[in-house]
Design a protein around this nucleic acid. Structure first.
Lengths: 212, 212
DNA sequence: TTAGTTGTTAACCAAGTGGTTAAACTATTT
DNA sequence: AAATAGTTTAACCACTTGGTTAACAACTAA
C-alpha cells in the first residue's frame, strides 16, 4: 500500500536483516542485532515476522523477487525490441553482472542459501514464479535453442551452456573477497568488472558461435 | 607421525567437525554436536583444539591442503609427462570436477569460507603455499600464456580465462542442491557430471583455440 | 468521548552455548 | 613401584539467544 519511501518499521527491519544476514549468515545473525541495526525494539521483529525462520524466508523472497524482476525486465525489453540472438545473450551476461554488482548483500545471501540447499528456496521462488511461466532462464534457453536452429550457434547443449554462463558470471562475486589469490590486485573495481564482462562475452561467444 | 588409519581422538574430532560444519556452517555448528558425532566428550574438543575459531581454522587448513595436493599432484604429473597445452587444460578441468565431486563436504565449507571472505583463509592458505611458489593456478596460468605464444590459443587474458574456468567448473557444485531450477532432473549423477565435463571442455576449447 | 485496533517498549525467561575444572584413568618413564 | 605425562570424563558456570508478556501510546471509527 505504501509505495513511498517505505520507511515503515517493517521495511526497516527487513533491510537491517538483509544487511546483517549478508555479513554473518543465517545462523550467525542475532535477532537483537537486527533490531539494533533497524533502530527499534526486538519485540517488533517478532511482531512483524513471527520468528527467525520466517524472517529469513521473507528476506529470501525479497531478494529473489527483486533480482528476478531486474533481469526479467531488461531481457524482455531486449526481446521485444527485436534484438538478435547474440546481443540477447551478451546483454543477459551484462545484466547479471549489473545485478550481482549492485547488490552485494543480496548476492552473498543467495550464495549462502543456494550452496546450503536451504529448504526456504523453493518457497521463496514460488513467489517469483507463480505469476508467469517465463523467467530469465527460460528466455536464455529459448534464445540458445533458436540460435542453434538458425545456424548462429554451434550444436551446444543449451542447458549445460546456460549453467556455464551462470558460473562464469557468478564466480567473481563468489570469490570477490579472496580474488587476490588469483594473482590479482584490483584497484579500480568498476574498471575490472568491465574488462571481466568483455572477457566473459569474448570467451562465451567464441565458444558458442559457428566458425566460418 | 601416525600415517596409519589415524583413528586418534584428534582425527575423529576433525572429521566430525568437517561433517557438521559442512551441514550447518561455522556459526550453526555446536561444539557439543561435534563431540557427539565424534563419540567423545566435549572437553576433548577443547583439549585438542582450544576453541571454536581454532578448530575451524584447522578444518580449513585440512581442506585446503588436501584439495590442493590432489590437484597439484595430478597436474604436475601431466606436465612431467610432457603432455600438450590442450590436454593439460582439459585434464585440469577434469581434476577439479573429481576433487569437488569426491569431497562435497570440503566443497561446501570452501564455498562458505570464500563467499564470506573469512579471515582464516589467508592463514589456511599459508600452510599450503609456504613450501613452494608453484600452485595449480600458476601451472594453468603458465600453460595458457605459453599456449598463446605458441599460437595454440587465441590472445585471451590468461587471468580472466583462469577465473572463467574456475567458475564454469565450480558452478554445478555450488548449485547442486537446487539444480532442478535449471529445468534439470538428474537421475544418474555420475553420468551427468561426465556430460557436464565434456560440455565444459567443449565450450572452453572452442572459446580458447585459434580458428583455422 | 470512547472503544477498539495497531504499533511500541522494557523487562523477563527457559533453553541453550562456548568454555572450564577437578578428578580419574591410562600409558610411559625412571 | 613410584613418579610423570598424556588422555578422558561428568559436572559445572557465566553468558547469550530466540522468543514472550504485559503494559502503554497512538491512531481510527462510531
Amino acid at each position: 500500500m505504501n509505495s513511498q519511501i517505505d520507511n515503515t518499521s517493517k521495511e526497516k527491519i527487513l533491510r537491517a536483516a538483509i544487511k546483517i544476514i549478508a555479513q554473518k549468515g543465517k545462523h550467525g545473525t542475532r535477532m537483537d542485532e537486527i533490531a539494533q541495526e533497524a533502530g527499534i525494539n526486538k519485540a517488533m521483529v517478532y511482531y512483524y515476522f513471527s520468528n527467525k525462520d520466517n524472517l529469513f524466508l521473507e528476506v529470501l523472497k525479497t531478494i529473489f523477487s527483486e533480482m528476478y524482476q531486474h533481469s526479467m525486465h531488461k531481457i524482455s525489453e531486449d526481446i521485444s525490441k527485436g534484438k538478435g540472438h547474440i546481443e540477447i545473450i551478451n546483454n543477459s551476461i551484462r545484466y547479471s553482472f549489473e545485478s550481482y554488482n549492485k547488490n552485494p548483500d543480496y548476492t552473498r545471501i543467495m550464495i549462502d542459501a543456494i550452496s546450503n540447499g536451504m529448504d526456504e528456496i523453493p518457497k521463496a521462488l514460488e513467489v517469483v514464479y507463480n505469476n508467469s511461466t517465463l523467467s530469465p532462464v527460460s528466455y536464455i534457453l529459448n534464445t540458445i535453442e533458436d540460435g542453434i536452429k538458425k545456424n548462429i550457434f554451434r550444436e551446444v547443449d543449451p542447458v549445460q551452456t546456460m549453467i556455464s554462463i551462470t558460473g562464469i558470471t557468478f564466480i567473481y562475486f563468489l570469490s570477490r573477497n579472496i580474488i587476490n589469490f588469483f594473482g590479482l590486485n584490483i584497484e579500480n573495481e568498476e574498471e575490472f568488472i568491465n574488462t571481466r564482462i568483455q572477457s566473459v562475452i569474448d570467451l562465451i561467444m567464441h565458444g558458442m558461435l559457428i566458425r566460418e
